[in-house]
Amino acid sequence: MPIPDSSRACSADFVDRHIHGIAGVDFATSSVADIRSGLEYLYSRRTTRVTASIPTVDITQLSASLERLGPLVAAGLLKGVHLEGPFIARDYAGAHPIQAVLSPASSQGSSYLDEVLAHQRTHAVVTMMTLAPELEGFDALVETLVAHGIAPALGHTGATYDQMAHAINVIHALTEAPVVITHAYNAMRGFHHRDPGPMLAVLEAAANDRAIVELIADGRHVHLGLIRWWFAHHPEAIRLVSDASAATVPPGGHPIGDSLPRLGHAQLAYPELQGPVVTDDSTLASGTKDLLAIHDNLVAAGVDHAAVCPAMRD
């Protein structure tokens, strides 16, 4: 089936709340000039509202990243910054560097949070942070983040059903808003009928309008049948995101600059059959498509664009 002309199928611009970069540009480490070029490229492909996702990085790199991205947020070129770590589960870190993963109850974790909050008091650019519910100090961390205008999201976790349900309840009680689930199913403990893990709690929350589920519908991260299930049962809970990185080059596109693609600390490669991975590793590192390509592929697969487009407009 030919891929449809998306300009006729859906005239809306797209919102990407989870994207690390595009076409050679890494939001965590690239220059301001290259980030501007990357955003212009995304705008040309109708992703006009972007939240820059920063993977788990050490505290020095975090400060440098926030200093570069802050003026872009102030200028309206970015909608904010999403910190995907460092308070995540080491066993479910995925492409995030284990050495930079922290516990919120540790002295290093406390210093990291202090650095985030110091930037936030001066320029409130961080809009969301992904956390693992099972970490010691989770409840206190959530209260602190919400008090400083940062929405806690849940992901990169080996949480039990009870831990995930508790985390959703705690965040929802403080924010009175649906809780974001970071790239659902990926970097999360799986389902078992005697130990359902975190996703059963997510499903229950979505059914009660208490969760927003990020789905990377690039054909590699989540099975199409499962994507269809969500659209059939809980379309209002879906937030389609690209999770794209500097190693993600949309069809017909070319990398910006000649640097090797990065994801924060990690250097990336792009095996043709797998998509972006950490160099010298088989760990899937990011999404393989931007939102325009995701939209077109879903429509080509028979998903109604009238359902797809709202899931990309937040």
Score class of each variant (00 low, 15 high):
124 A>P: 15
80 G>T: 10
99 Q>W: 04
92 Y>S: 04
103 S>R: 02
92 Y>G: 01
91 D>Y: 12
85 G>T: 06
115 E>K: 14
106 S>M: 05
125 V>E: 11
86 P>I: 01
87 F>W: 05
98 I>G: 01
116 V>K: 07
89 A>F: 01
82 H>Y: 14
105 A>V: 00
90 R>L: 14
106 S>Y: 00
127 T>E: 09
80 G>Q: 13
120 Q>T: 11
97 P>C: 07
125 V>K: 10
127 T>I: 12
80 G>S: 13
121 R>D: 14
84 E>A: 02
97 P>R: 09
95 A>Q: 01
119 H>I: 08
81 V>W: 09
92 Y>K: 14
125 V>D: 12
123 H>T: 13
95 A>N: 03
127 T>S: 13
83 L>K: 04
93 A>V: 07
96 H>D: 02
102 L>S: 01
122 T>C: 07
100 A>M: 02
83 L>E: 01
108 Q>K: 15
80 G>K: 10
125 V>C: 14
98 I>W: 00
83 L>I: 04
82 H>W: 03
106 S>N: 08
123 H>L: 13
83 L>V: 07
110 S>C: 05
93 A>C: 14
112 Y>M: 12
116 V>R: 05
102 L>H: 01
123 H>K: 13
123 H>M: 12
106 S>W: 00
85 G>Q: 10
83 L>A: 01
125 V>P: 02
94 G>E: 02
121 R>S: 14
100 A>Y: 04
115 E>M: 13
115 E>T: 15
94 G>H: 05
119 H>E: 06
87 F>A: 01
112 Y>I: 09
126 V>E: 04
83 L>D: 00
110 S>W: 00
87 F>C: 03
88 I>W: 02
87 F>P: 03
102 L>Y: 00
101 V>I: 13
100 A>Q: 11
93 A>Y: 02
89 A>R: 08
97 P>A: 10
122 T>G: 08
94 G>Y: 07
108 Q>G: 09
91 D>P: 07
105 A>Y: 01
119 H>S: 08
